[in-house]
Design a binder for these strands. Sequence first.
DNA 1: GAATTTGTACTGACCGGTCAGTTTAAACGG
DNA 2: CCGTTTAAACTGACCGGTCAGTACAAATTC
Lengths: 191, 191
Amino acid sequence: MSARTTATKQKLFDAALKLVGERGAASVTVDEIAAEAGVAKGTIYYNFASKDALVEALLHHGVEILAGRLRSAEGSEDSLEALVDEMLGFWAEYPAFGQLLVSELWRTPGQWHGTLSLLRDDIVSIVRGHMKRLSDAGRLPDGVEVGTASAALFGTLLVIALDWQVFQPERSRAEVRDSVMHLVRGLGPAR
Amino acid sequence: MSARTTATKQKLFDAALKLVGERGAASVTVDEIAAEAGVAKGTIYYNFASKDALVEALLHHGVEILAGRLRSAEGSEDSLEALVDEMLGFWAEYPAFGQLLVSELWRTPGQWHGTLSLLRDDIVSIVRGHMKRLSDAGRLPDGVEVGTASAALFGTLLVIALDWQVFQPERSRAEVRDSVMHLVRGLGPAR
DNA sequence: GAATTTGTACTGACCGGTCAGTTTAAACGG
DNA sequence: CCGTTTAAACTGACCGGTCAGTACAAATTC
């Protein structure tokens, strides 16, 4: 793949991510994506087999970036906090990706459900790795299943990040992160 | 409004909820909704001004039901657990509504965003009522803002419920509820 | 080293299907 | 009767996908 093609695909990813995140995959037209990317419609079909294929590639691309960042948080001192922080950072940087993910991930017979399930597993398994190490170190209370907790943490962070972007954009990332950590470790003691 | 009309609207709500939840508002056709409801297409346009108006009415309808249930949980002994349970029950009963909500709620300039923000506020304020009472009773740890926690709890329950329906349908509602309560009160102590 | 060929990337007008919404005339039902 | 529903045909805008042709740089030929 030439540098030219790579650049074009990147432009298409950026444009598609923005529009699809904002308005949903179904209601965005290929013409709009082409216009946003500053590219002719035909170029899209030269680089991708179909509109669906473009979205699918986009999904893979985004998850790759996220997975990379989450893995990079594995070495930190406070692994869980680093994970949360990294995840919030990713959603802050690619809010449209969060919107895309959230609106497709749980659509049961949806066209991307298969792909998305796999991608979700990628992410959740990384989260599970973090959790597992906490658990082995005895830092997780009894009765909390690592698998369940990982899936829940991922989903929770996703919606909290979206809620942050949309309804409370004035809050800082550190502030939100601290709130999350409070909730994750906090609501318990008082009961 | 006659009983006949009410019945027709109910059929349309059921049909629209199912289809729109599964496949998204944009990609469902009015003809499909009519067929699913066993009603002529013209009937839809007799009862609603447009496809969008139907979806909007659907949103209001669903939120009314949810709000009613959450309010009914206010008298319980363990108010928070009752709230969680009631909410999980609602999402279990109307999974398509959860899918619809989650895929539209955070779509920033989306056509439903205004309506949905108001509806979200309705629900979150009920949750906040529950939390406030906990807080006044000194059962919430310091540093947890009631507003933030309420929004987070609502969003979290929404995604956990969806994840449950889609990826772990074999788990019982009580099981999920206990997991949530564990997470809400549990991850803290061990750190 | 000019002329020609080849391969790759891109263009945008165009086509055929789809779908929201309309219209109408007739039936139904309370 | 009158509010409601039906069935079916129709309109017109819109949209995914196609395709013949362009641009251009790197090889190839003479």
